[in-house]
Design a protein around this nucleic acid. Structure first.
Lengths: 202, 202
DNA sequence: AATTGGTTTAACCGTGTGGTTAATTTTTCG
DNA sequence: CGAAAAATTAACCACACGGTTAAACCAATT
C-alpha cells in the first residue's frame, strides 16, 4: 500500500508535463514547474539545463506514448471494419485519460513542424501504408465503395481528435453540461465507427 | 489604383491580428505588434490600453467573422443534402484563406471557455437548432438512417476543421508535399460531403 | 502668431522570467 | 568515521516584457 517516493527526476517530469500541457509552451513558467514538483527552481536547471531542453523531452515523451499505441492498432491483421472499430475505441479511451494532449500536440506541431518530423522518424516512421493498402485492396475487391485511403484516414482522425479540441465550442453551441458532453463522447465509441463503416460499405 | 494610407488604428489591428494568430496569445509580444504596425510601442497602449484589451478585440473580431458566415449557411431553407454540400464548400473556402484561425480559436477557447461563451452570446446565440431539427425530421421521415443530430454535427465540424490543425501531422505521416496536401484539401470540397451523405442516406 | 487638442515619440520603470553561482545539506563509499 | 560526490537551496543577475511619463510634433482654429 505504501508508495516509494518517486525520484526527483520523475517528479520534475510529471510536473513539467502537467504545466506544459495546461499552459502551453509559451505560457508555462519554470517556477510553476518547480513549485509543483516541490523543489527549488535551481534544481530544475540542475536536472534539465533549459526550458527548451525540458520541453523537448516532454514533447518526445508525449509523441512516444501516443504514436506506438495508434500504430499498433493500425498495423494488426484484423478485418478492415473490425480494425476501424478497434481504432476508434482505443483512441477515445486514450484521449479520455489525456484530454490535454491534443491541444498541446497540435500547437507544438504547428509552431515547429520539423520537430515532430524528427521525433516521428526517430521512433520508426509511422506505418500507415498497411492501413492504406488494406483500404485500397478492399476498394479493388469491391468490398467497399471507391474512396481515397488518404481521405478516409483524414476523416477518421479528424472525428477522433477534434471533439477534444473543440469541446468548449461544442458545449456552448449545443448547450451541453459537462456530464451531457461526456455521454456524447461515450456514444462516439460506437457511433463514429458506425458512421465511417456506413459511409464506405459497398 | 492608389490606396489611401490606412488609419493607425487599423494598422495596429491588422498587425495585432497577424502576430496573435502566428504566435498565440502568450507568445505574442507588444513590441512586435508595434514594429509590424510601424509605430512606437507607447502608441499601441495609447490606442488599446493593454495587451488583454487588444487581444480581446482581436478575438471578438475573429469570432465575428466566422460565426455569422457558418450560421448563415446552416440556417437557410435548403434541402439537407444540398445544405451539407454548401456548408462543406463554404467552410473549406473560408479556412483556406484564414488557415491560422482554427489554431488560435481552439487555443483561446480552451484557455478561457467563458470568453467564447460571452462573445458568442453577444452576437446572437448560434442557432444550430434549425439544422438539428432538420436532421431529426429527416430521420423521422425515414429519408436518412437514424442518427443523432449532435453526433452528425460533431462529425461534420471535425472533418472540416481538423485537417487545418493537423496539417503538419498529416503531411509527415502521409508523406505529402505542400502541393499534394493542397490537392487533397481541394478534393475534400466534394469528398467530405459525399462521405457524410453516403453515411446517413437511408 | 498663439492656443488648443489630438497624435507620436524617446526614455524610463517595475516586475517576472529564464538562468547562474556559491554555499550547504545529504548521500555514497573506502 | 571522513572525504569525495551528488543533491539541494538561497541569493542573485541580466534582460525582456507590459506598461507609463513627459515632452515634442502637428494640424486646425482664433
Amino acid at each position: 500500500m505504501e508508495s516509494l517516493k518517486p525520484s526527483t527526476e520523475t517528479l520534475i517530469l510529471d510536473a513539467a508535463q502537467a504545466v506544459f500541457l495546461e499552459k502551453g509552451l509559451a505560457g508555462a513558467r519554470m517556477q510553476e514547474i518547480a513549485d509543483r514538483a516541490g523543489i527549488n527552481k535551481a534544481l530544475l536547471h540542475y536536472y534539465f539545463r533549459s526550458k527548451e531542453k525540458l520541453s523537448g523531452i516532454i514533447i518526445s515523451r508525449a509523441i512516444g506514448v501516443i504514436m506506438p499505441r495508434m500504430m499498433g492498432v493500425l498495423e494488426t491483421d484484423q478485418d478492415l471494419f473490425e480494425k476501424i472499430r478497434n481504432v476508434v475505441n482505443t483512441f477515445i479511451s486514450f484521449m479520455s485519460h489525456n484530454s490535454y494532449l491534443p491541444l498541446f500536440m497540435v500547437n507544438e506541431v504547428n509552431r515547429n513542424p520539423q520537430f515532430f518530423f524528427t521525433a516521428a522518424i526517430q521512433q520508426e516512421k509511422p506505418h500507415l501504408d498497411k492501413f492504406c493498402r488494406q483500404v485500397d485492396e478492399a476498394v479493388a475487391q469491391g468490398r467497399i465503395r471507391p474512396i481515397s485511403s488518404t481521405q478516409l484516414l483524414m476523416n477518421m482522425m479528424s472525428m477522433l481528435v477534434y471533439p477534444f479540441l473543440g469541446k468548449p465550442i461544442f458545449r456552448v453551441a449545443l448547450g451541453l453540461t459537462e456530464e451531457a458532453f461526456q455521454e456524447e463522447m461515450e456514444r462516439r465509441r460506437t457511433d463514429v465507427a458506425d458512421f465511417i463503416i456506413k459511409s464506405i460499405e459497398a
